[in-house]
Amino acid sequence: MSTTAKALEIKNLSKTYRDGTVALRGIDLDVEEGEFFGLLGPNGAGKSTTIGIITSLVNKTGGKIRCFGVDLDRDPARAKRQIGLVPQEFNFNQFEPPEQIVMQQAGYYGITRSVARQRTEKYLRKMGLWDKRATIARMLSGGMKRRLMIARALVHEPKLLILDEPTAGVDIDLRRATWSLLEEINEDGTTVILTTHYLEEAESLCRRIAIIDRGRVIENTDKKSLLAKLNIETFIFDLESPAPAGLLLDGYSHRLTDATTLEIDVSRERSLNAVFESLTQQNVNVVSMRNKANRLEELFVEMVEANASQPNNG
């Protein structure tokens, strides 16, 4: 077995559902070992189908998947042993306590009860759920349930952890706590694949990002290269006092959203220094400045819109 095998290699993966819906149109995707990989796309783009096929929850129509060099068709047991899944929906038995849920999952992966017991304690403690180990899962808060699914996915210590919208619908505190946890897991050597609707999340966590839309991968590159493709960023300036009538910002598209809030579009070739110089010359004092939207979000919208205008051939 090669030690340099990719964590995941997807070749020409396609999926057509029985009702004729084409979910994937031959996607190729490689994820390097140790990467924190973001899989982004609008609703119905094919993200969950891709994850479903990787984790054997969905039958593929065509293509090949290798996980750490192991062909999922030829040796599914060996490939599946390397994968941990945190699904989007709560899919544990709501009438069982966390300890039993995690212990059972360990058993399904062939882990002896004594080792399973140790690991269950380790991961429930790590997720802050040890005190709740005997509470019926139904009684846990939404955040606890999400952490329980992460503990369950980690109990067999997979080399590849796949998370499908792990922070969907959770408050910002929990979202940030989950981010820290995922960074920690990745730093420990686990390859992480994350799908998310929160582009801020992807920008913050992922080192490599693929954008999937209408069953095709329309972008797959490292985050820095991806963000470099962003042509125009919009900044919001909060002004100390109302902007003077006839405010001039030569070469910059701008608009006032209210008397003291100014939006300015800045292209990659232009500098922000010139904006500040011009505002200072016109006695406009800036109190604060921020991005109107997350940079990745702007790029994402741009790319998906561009893809939507392309004909959908087969």
Binding site: T55, L57, K80, R81, L85, N91, F92, Q105
Partner: peptide
Amino acid sequence: SSKFQRNVEEILISPMH
């Protein structure tokens, strides 16, 4: 019930024969 609650997925993703 496992299918309905979707916890059958715990088994489907596992390496068990």
